[in-house]
Design a protein around this nucleic acid. Structure first.
Length: 595
RNA sequence: GCGCCCAUAGCUCAGAUGGAUAGAGCGUUGGCCUCCGGAGCCAAAGGUCAGAGGUUCGAAUCCUCUUGGGCGCGCCA
């Protein structure tokens, strides 16, 4: 409906230009129409006349009037008024709203979807947490946000490819594998001090136990031998408080242990431990996300990137382009040439490519796959990483604008009114699974998506866990369940309703008008939410829709004697139910028949 | 120190490309079905849009500065 008006207005603008009202050198402004806040101003309004006034050297009201005269007639429009300093106010014909109801009932699950995307392929990569431990509530925000962004893009006609980048290579994974092995050695009866920089979480014990169960003591090596020539560790915070005299470096210590693990186990046995940990944790993440309502088209392995030579290819291409230089034994990418604040290492002194090198290869490969554009959803702490990735893509001759990085701010977790720290390494965190079990998938997802991604979010665990009506998801679900209940009551009373449109003009109450207006806003809301990557717009819309329904419900009975009126009201209410259902589905929240 | 993000009602937050009187939820106060589900509805109170300048017909929105917070600045990922 919004689009219709904009098309009409664009035509009027063109005509106005032809008639010589506008200076020829000025570009024609886009015909933007927006919803009015006040019903007295009609249904839609445009400010083009105000915007145009200066360049055309005309009074805004004159321009508005001239535009009004040139608007093609349309059955949806009842009348157009010039108001205030030069607003064009559009008043829709009641019939236009009736057609919306018919359209909703006809389209059903598809209502609101569009072909805006034209089947263009878009990739959305999100979560991509290192498989070094279970997902925590911080990942939950990215999971909810990313999956809804993907759903929104799909709803407006893009072919969406959802992808999780699995960091199954690199030092963090080595730390994990070594931590698992050390726990295994403890299960074998070895006694030693666990490294401060190892992964401390309890889930490590489970994996170590599996290892012990399947391989017995086949990987056991005496602790003294393992620790031989390994640099001293630094104290943990607890040890520091207790005054332990360790003065070493925790990174050097863990690297030493990793080296010993590889050395003592040999490549093959080390890989066994490594892969066991990787698969156990990855499967955990996959099932966790699955239960959270998040599906991927692809789980993309970082290791496969190396194995297929993609990392070397990227490095070679950068070298060939003259974008790398050797300094102190390492290869540096001259990212400052493309706007980054400093140059970055891509190949370490020891010959190992950095994580950044893999990431360059990954993004190069993403664009090679022919997506219209690719969306990366990252935690806001990675914002400094954006310029170097874009720099690399530019250096490789790719269009860096095809990469859109969306940063999700942290959810600051509160429990009992106090802020909680989250750290995978220390093992002290609330997992996504815990949250899901305590709050439920529906509430958790809705809660996450209610806030715009660029806002810092206070996640009050107690509030989210309490099944109070503070949580707006129940409010929306209740509206849906209530409508279903109305139709059950209809059947119980032996009444019927007729979808035929003939009686929709009986919808004359202000509550009915308000609800119809809200229904008509759904398609444009979906579109805006998709294009702005802003799921919260949809969440807020659904809450408004639920409000309009509940208000209407309280003000007027639907199951009235008058069959025409009854059918009209039920058609309206059924349309509301359909949209609640459609919108909740996109957010990944169920629309229950009863609660 | 440098860079990015943020600051709107008591609390949590909406206000895309500058538009008409800045909105919602929660909380507070006071009301509402013998009825289709009270997880609901109605009403009231609540604002120096962090502060100060600037741009213009018009600024919560754009620019500059200040204050206050978050994050980043590794041959980690």
């Amino acid at each position: 409906m919004k689009r219709t008006l904009e098309t009409l207005l664009a035509a009027a603008l063109l005509q106005l230009n032809k008639d010589g009202w506008l200076t020829t050198d000025a570009a024609l402004p886009t015909a933007v129409v927006e919803r009015t806040r006040d019903r007295l101003h009609g249904d839609f309004a445009s400010t083009v006349a105000l915007a145009l006034a200066k360049s055309a050297r005309r009074k805004p009201r004159e321009l508005a009037e001239a535009l009004r005269m040139r608007l093609p007639s349309d059955p949806s429009i009842d009348r157009v008024e010039v108001a205030g300093p030069g607003f064009l106010n559009f008043f829709l014909a009641p019939d236009a709203y009736h057609r919306v109801i018919q359209q909703v009932l006809a389209d059903g699950d598809r209502f609101g979807c569009s072909t805006l995307g034209g089947d263009r392929r878009v990739q959305v990569e999100f979560v991509s947490a290192n498989p070094t431990g279970p997902l925590h509530v911080g990942h939950g925000r990215g999971a909810a946000y990313g999956s809804v962004v993907a759903e929104l893009l799909a709803a407006v006609g893009f072919r969406v490819h959802r992808e999780y980048y699995v960091n199954d290579a690199g030092r963090q994974m080595d730390i994990l594998a070594t931590s698992i092995w050390l726990r295994y050695l403890e299960l074998c009866g070895e006694v030693f001090r666990f490294p401060s920089n190892g992964y401390q979480g309890n889930y490590l014990w489970d994996i170590a136990a599996t290892l012990h169960r399947t391989l017995g003591e086949g990987l056991r090596i005496a602790a003294a031998s393992v620790l031989e020539a390994v640099p001293e560790d630094a104290p943990t915070t607890e040890e520091q408080a207790a005054g332990t005299g360790l003065t070493g470096d925790k990174e050097a210590h863990i690297d030493g242990l990793i080296g010993r693990a590889k050395e003592l186990l040999g490549a093959k046995r080390y890989r066994t431990v490594f892969d066991l940990g990787l698969h156990a944790i990855l499967e955990d993440i996959q099932s966790d996300l699955g239960h959270f309502g998040v599906q991927y088209e692809e789980w993309y392995s970082e290791r496969s990137l190396t194995e297929r030579g993609k990392v070397n290819e990227a490095i070679d291409r950068l070298k060939a382009g003259g974008h790398l230089y050797l300094q102190e034994g390492a290869w540096w990418f001259r990212s400052t040439a493309f706007g980054d604040e400093k140059d970055r290492v891509v190949v370490r002194e020891n010959g190992q490519p950095t994580y950044f090198a893999s990431d360059i290869a990954y993004h190069m490969e993403k664009l090679e796959r022919g997506f219209e554009w690719v969306v990366d959803i990252w935690g806001a702490d990675h914002h400094g990483y954006v310029p170097r990735i874009k720099a690399a893509l530019t250096a490789l001759g790719a269009d860096a604008n095809k990469l859109r990085v969306l940063l999700v701010q942290f959810a600051i977790l509160y429990r009992n009114g106090t802020r909680m720290q989250m750290s995978t390494r220390s093992g002290e965190f609330v997992t996504l699974r815990e949250l899901r079990r305590e709050v439920g998938k529906d509430a958790a997802r809705f809660f996450y998506v209610l806030r715009s991604a660029e806002q810092h979010m206070d996640f009050d665990l107690d509030l989210a866990k309490s099944q109070s009506n503070d949580n707006p998801v129940y409010y929306c679900q209740y509206a849906h369940a209530r409508i279903c209940s109305v139709f059950r009551a209809l059947a119980e009373k032996g009444l019927s309703w007729d979808r035929s449109t003939a009686t929709l003009e009986r919808l004359t109450e202000s509550h009915e008008q308000a609800l119809m207006t809200t229904l008509s806003r759904y398609p444009e809301t979906l579109e805006a939410a998709a294009l702005a990557y802003a799921p919260h717009l949809l969440a807020h819309y659904l809450r408004e829709l639920a409000t309009d329904f509940h208000t209407y419900y309280n003000a007027h009975p639907f199951l009235v004697e008058d069959a025409d009126l009854r059918s009209a009201r039920l058609a309206l209410v059924e349309a509301a139910r359909q949209i609640l259902s459609n919108g909740l589905r996109i957010i990944g929240v169920s629309a229950p028949d009863h609660m």
